[in-house]
Design a protein around this nucleic acid. Sequence first.
DNA 1: TACAGCGGAATTGCTAACGATTCTATTGTC
DNA 2: GACAATAGAATCGTTAGCAATTCCGCTGTA
Lengths: 226, 226
Amino acid sequence: MTTTPRQTERLQDTASVVHAIREAIVAGEFNPGQRLIESELSQRFSASRGTVRQALALLGNEGLAVSEANRGARVRPVSKAEAIEITEVRAVLEGLCARRAAANASAAERKELRELGATMQAAVKRGDIMTYSQVSQDVHLRIRELSGQHTAADLLNRLRFRSVRYQFSVALLPGRPVVGLKEHLGVIKAVAAGQSDLAEHLMREHLESVVEAISQLPESLPALHG
Amino acid sequence: MTTTPRQTERLQDTASVVHAIREAIVAGEFNPGQRLIESELSQRFSASRGTVRQALALLGNEGLAVSEANRGARVRPVSKAEAIEITEVRAVLEGLCARRAAANASAAERKELRELGATMQAAVKRGDIMTYSQVSQDVHLRIRELSGQHTAADLLNRLRFRSVRYQFSVALLPGRPVVGLKEHLGVIKAVAAGQSDLAEHLMREHLESVVEAISQLPESLPALHG
DNA sequence: TACAGCGGAATTGCTAACGATTCTATTGTC
DNA sequence: GACAATAGAATCGTTAGCAATTCCGCTGTA
């Protein structure tokens, strides 16, 4: 009711509809637990109900929506406990990626990582949390890419959407950027130095510290819209 | 052409069709790279093309099929390199599960695990590889369940289908059951003793030894059918 | 013989429509 | 006034059908 039902441009294929609905969920335009009615989405995205239906099934598979038989689909609410589980999984998977990245990265790529570190450090120094948050995401992404572990990278890309809201809240916690920055710089240093064991260890520790931060969050997050 | 196109009982809902196609792929009834033609599957499973279409999309999402635009779906071939990647991911995820299982399991559950270990041991002793293979799968599954880490357990359940063929080939390698048994017993002992760190470590080592075994397999596996 | 051009068959992507199920608000009964 | 029964609206699950794209074998030319 509070969301703006602006008419989006015509999206023909299923993939586009999946993308559009996912973006809307991640952006908080559809709140957790909110019903996703096929006919409404069909109108909003100017696609047929069949296409929307298929898109919802895919999003269900991805963990962003749930659907009960004959009762339609809803935005899947992610509890704090589940956000912690997701972050624990990220810890071991990103640990694996950090290990591989440390082993694989070229000289140019190591340099690039160090530069991302410097950018983050500068952002925190001047209190620019949004830039810090963005660049730290980039660091994680880049390490995944450098790992060459496509299977792990793919799983991580999917998990990301489920926990974005908690990620965001953590980044806003007072004092968190300073702690996070320190951890990130440690990871970068180890990866850039080719220290596989250390890189994995520090990446795991970093995400376990995020687990700690999440567990200090309130049980339910504030709605982004409405 | 060589596969038996027997008429299966009517499958109404999408989930059943997904299950049926998945089983057929895993059983090797559809070979890697083979085209999955919507109309054929529609006939075979007595479901509408729309339902089959949705099922194929879900299987694509799961990594068992690939589909190119306007060119339909095919059984996704899994290279040896990818099987290794999958097993590396399993190593860290199952390591996490073993850690949690060691921390969580009740007395009855610890006993149950030890009994599974004894069953495995007896099977290997009498050279019953099929039973050993089955029970060892059960051990992995049970540890996942005991972990309480639903997110990791879910990802592992999905990954399983992608690498079954390689898993199977590894189990048939000469001398492999003896090695695998030893590793499994070690994991069980650590989990049953509540030694989290050790349980995770041994589970990772176990699956890294599977990685080694896979890398000694020939590049392409023999077809199971036709 | 090798190969580009072409036309029909096969197959996919999408949409509209129908029947089945679930939800909701009203009515009737105790 | 509380609560079960019921009718109508809303929504879902499935199927059939049409347009667009790709595949495949044929023909003609160098």
